[in-house]
Amino acid sequence: MTASLAPSQAPAGRRRSPRRRLGPVGTSVLGAVIGLAFLIPLWWTVVNSLRPGDETFRYLNPLEWRTFFTLTPTLDNYFALLDTDLGRAILNSLFISLVTVVVGLVICATAAYGLSAFTFRGQGIVFSVIILSFLIPFDAIAIPLADMFRDWNLQNTFFGLILPGLGNGMAIFLLRTFFLAIPEELVEAARLDGLGPWGVFRRIYLPLSVPALIGAGLMLFLFQWQAYVWPLLMGTDRDHVVGPVALSNLQGQFAVDYGVLFAASVILILIPLAIIIGFQRYFIQSVSTTGLK
């Protein structure tokens, strides 16, 4: 294919210096090598989760094909995970993230509606509070906040773990951008039909904003799923510890079953990955809206 294309390209490309040009084949090969390099740690993690823990280091010296493949894959590590605290921790993470998405979406969507569908005095101030709230990184203020939560006896409670994830300035900002684009005629028509502010929100704004809601939901989910500093400060007892914290505790121990460690890693990666891939379009949309506008 490349060869047949070359002659027709020749007139346009004559003046270019051939040395500097990376042909389609070269581009492909370079792209493949880099892509595979990024895949290796992930692939190795998955393969190790499918074989007994004592085989993790067996095929590393020297490297061979069995380093990256196993002929006898087994799900034993995943079953073993079910009986450990790590399995429980992953369920905790899932619970915290899902509650955050549901409650957080309600809070953020109503706020975005209040900000975009009405004009009132002090709107500018409210808007700046929201902007300022996401300019201050949450992790940076986690320690003073943890101090406050300790005074309120919220340590080692799901409430304390979930609460900071609910109000997300970035999600409000994303939803507001979307809400502002909803045609006024539609809202007016709904109002003439007798819908109040809540009815307009439920019947007009929400159904028209599904993509933005999914994007905001993803933001809320990933915020909690990736959280580490906050759960480390807030909930480390057996019943409330989250997946990443439990996994890192395991890493520090002397006798580690690497098979189980890798199985837990795979699940902690697979869940957000499946969600991101499933909602790919909305994810990219939300990423580009928050980033560039």
């Binding site: 109503t110 706020a111 209040g114 900000l115 509070v129 906040l145 609460l163 109000g167």
Partner: peptide, 20 residues
């Protein structure tokens, strides 16, 4: 009305982001 819609988020952001 707007503030009623905004209240939960505003309280959350004020208490959990700006207050700390």
């Amino acid at each position: 009305i707007a503030l009623a819609f905004l209240a939960p988020a505003l309280i959350a952001l004020l208490v959990l982001r700006l207050a700390p």
